[in-house]
């Protein structure tokens, strides 16, 4: 059974028909072909599917697509600014925060949401914000450096 929803996706107005039992993650990846958002555990533990809904980081595997009706949604595909890498993306690259890259989109969304609310977070605050994003490659150190250096200052 489909439902009509309207929402803002990476700054663009969207109007879609969506199955009511479809998870937001599947809607993004399958219906909208936004495959930057990844699936790692399906139970909200790994954070690979993290996106931003109404300025908060959420696991898209724990939401239904219909729940973003009227919301503002941001995925990794929306991080670029005027066709250029955003400061955070550049910092992830420059600081060596990316290895296999599978956790990277979710990690950046958690970090981006943090900086939206807290433009100058401490290392502890960064660690708390990304504790729900598992990374098996990097040991987090270069990620934390990258987030730290992405802030206003």
């Amino acid at each position: 059974m489909k439902k009509h929803i309207k929402f803002l996706l990476n700054g663009r107005e969207m109007a879609c028909e969506v199955e009511q039992n479809k998870r937001l993650l599947d809607f993004l990846r399958e219906d909208l072909q936004l495959t930057g958002t990844k699936e790692g555990c399906s139970v909200g533990e790994c954070g690979a599917c993290t996106i931003i809904v109404d300025k908060l980081a959420v696991n898209s595997c724990l939401m239904l697509a219909v729940q973003v009706d009227g919301a503002e949604v941001m995925t990794v595909e929306g991080l670029m600014e005027n066709g250029e890498l955003s400061k955070m993306q550049q910092q992830f690259i420059d600081k060596g925060a990316i290895q296999c890259g599978f956790c990277t989109p979710g990690m950046m969304m958690s970090a981006y949401a943090l900086i939206m609310h807290n433009p100058d977070p401490s290392v502890e605050e960064i660690k708390t914000a990304i504790a729900g994003n598992l990374c098996r490659c990097t040991g987090y150190k270069q990620i934390i450096e990258a987030v730290s250096c992405s802030c206003g200052k």
Partner: peptide
């Protein structure tokens, strides 16, 4: 320090797994 070969794709979500 050298930029990773695949960093751009991975940072933009366009790298294909």
């Amino acid at each position: 320090p050298v930029t990773r070969q695949d960093a751009y794709e991975k940072a933009t979500g366009t790298a294909l797994y």
